[in-house]
Simulated scan of single mutants.
Amino acid sequence: MSRDPSEGSDGEPTDADEQRADRQDSEDSRTEIVDLDAEDNAEPNETDAFDATGGTDDESEAAETEDESDDSGEAETHADGSTTEPAEGADEAEETTDEPEDTDEAEETKDETADTGEEAEDTDEAEETTDEPEDTDEESDTETPESETETTPIERKTGPAEDQEQPLTEHIEEMVKRVAVVVVIAGVVSLLAFPYGEEFINFLWYSVLPSDISKPHVYHPLELVVTQLKAASLLGLVLALPVFVYETYAFMRPGLYPHERRYYLAAVPTSLVLAFVGLLFGYFLILPAVMTYFLQYSRDVVDIAFALGQTFSLMLVLLGFLAVVFQIPLFVMLAIMMGLTTRTWLEERRLIIWGVFLAIAFLFSPDPTGMAPFLVAVTMIGLFEGTLLLLRWTGRGNG
């Protein structure tokens, strides 16, 4: 019976047997490590991607250790036929015994990465929550300019510093209020002057008409009262003209430069003076000329008995119209001084302006014969040309 050369002479295990036993133990420990890794990989974890990469690293390391163990496990054959394992086998066994510590370290790194993954998710959620107020801030920033364009006005670049753009509704509301002020003042003055209407009628009637004309005739019950109200309204119109000029100034004041404001303020008393000049012009020139024409036209045909209401209405309309007509020089001067137009521009279009004056005169004068409208149109043209002549003489308004 042949004897295994690896056994000793007495049948006791040799060093080779002990090395094989150690190698078997190392292989068992490796299988246990692989089983532990398989269990860890089977458990669900929030950082699967990281574990997957980590697992591949561990498997590669295990494969390398197995290759090293296989290489080191090859026995050296001696001359006598006996085989001995190299000394590196013991070192490899020690390395395999140390591998469980590496697995503990791997598990610790896995736990740390899981914790870091959770912290990263928490930080991402925190950043998302912090980004949401920024979005709300951006929305508020995008919404605030719209509210500011609705409530706050925008300054004009070419106008005065006080000039600010406003909605059209506010302009209309302000204009209606200022016109209402003019109407209220004219109405109050008319009511105060109403008790003196009869004296004014007698004064104007006998001043304009010849002395041989009989007293005015009344043809319906309220004719005298209505005529008194018309006479009082004439005084209210005259006194409301400067108020009208001032209200137009107040309406346009934010858009006026300081020198333009001075012109407008100076126009307020000037308007009142021009209105009284227009009344005097009508009283001394226009009314006598018109009434004389009417008397000569009808005296040889019929007996004259003028009605109070119609005759006095003609007088009042002419006087009030002339009070407004005499504002033409003021309006022309203001337009030129404020830079709205120039004297040269008006002179080049004077024929068009004359035609407009003539149309207005025939439209508002209550005389179908054309005498009164003609006299009023001549007066308007004379005032316009006189203003241009004055501007030419002073060298103003040549833009």
Rank of each mutant, 00 (worst) to 15 (best):
Met333Glu: 01
Met333Ser: 07
Met333Pro: 05
Met333Ile: 08
Met333Gly: 02
Met333Ala: 12
Met333Cys: 07
Leu334Glu: 00
Ala335Phe: 00
Ala335Gly: 13
Ala335Val: 00
Ala335Tyr: 02
Ala335Met: 04
Ala335Lys: 02
Ile336Lys: 05
Ile336Asn: 08
Ile336Gly: 11
Met337Ser: 13
Met337Asn: 13
Met338Val: 13
Met338Cys: 15
Met338Ile: 10
Gly339His: 04
Gly339Ser: 05
Gly339Arg: 03
Gly339Cys: 06
Gly339Gln: 01
Gly339Met: 00
Leu340Gln: 05
Leu340Trp: 07
Leu340Asn: 13
Leu340Asp: 15
Thr341Lys: 11
Thr341Asp: 09
Thr341His: 05
Thr341Val: 07
Thr342Ile: 10
Arg343Thr: 15
Arg343Gln: 14
Arg343Pro: 14
Arg343Cys: 15
Arg343Ala: 15
Arg343Ile: 15
Thr344Gln: 08
Thr344Glu: 00
Thr344Pro: 10
Thr344Phe: 14
Trp345Gly: 01
Trp345Gln: 09
Leu346His: 04
Leu346Phe: 07
Leu346Trp: 03
Leu346Gln: 00
Glu347Pro: 13
Glu348Thr: 11
Glu348Gly: 09
Glu348Trp: 03
Arg349Ser: 15
Arg349Thr: 13
Arg349Gly: 13
Arg349Met: 08
Arg350Lys: 10
Arg350Val: 04
Arg350Gln: 03
Ile352Met: 10
Ile352Tyr: 14
Ile352Gln: 07
Ile352Arg: 03
Ile353Met: 07
Ile353Ser: 02
Ile353Gly: 00
Trp354His: 09
Trp354Pro: 15
Gly355Arg: 10
Gly355Glu: 14
Val356Ile: 08
Val356Met: 08
Phe357Tyr: 02
Phe357Cys: 09
Phe357Met: 03
Leu358Asp: 11
Leu358Tyr: 11
Leu358Phe: 14
Leu358Asn: 07
Ala359Gln: 11
Ala359Pro: 05
Ala359Phe: 14
Ile360Trp: 04
Ile360Pro: 01
Ile360Met: 02
Ile360Leu: 06
Ile360Ala: 06
Ile360Arg: 02
Ala361Leu: 10
Ala361Cys: 03
Ala361Gln: 08
Ala361Met: 07
Phe362Cys: 01
Phe362Pro: 05
Phe362Ile: 06
Leu363Gln: 02
Leu363Thr: 04
Phe364Asp: 03
Phe364His: 04
Phe364Tyr: 08
Ser365Arg: 11
Ser365Gly: 10
Pro366Tyr: 14
Asp367Val: 02
Asp367Ile: 01
Asp367Leu: 10
Asp367Ala: 03
Pro368Ile: 06
Pro368His: 05
Pro368Trp: 12
Pro368Glu: 12
Pro368Gln: 13
Thr369His: 01
Thr369Trp: 03
Thr369Met: 12
Thr369Phe: 02
Met371Val: 12
Met371Arg: 09
Met371Cys: 10
Met371Asn: 01
Ala372Cys: 09
Pro373Thr: 14
Phe374Val: 10
Leu375Gly: 00
Leu375Met: 02
Leu375His: 01
Leu375Ile: 03
Leu375Lys: 04
Val376Ser: 06
Val376Gln: 05
Val376Trp: 02
Ala377Asn: 05
Ala377Thr: 07
Ala377Glu: 00
Ala377Pro: 04
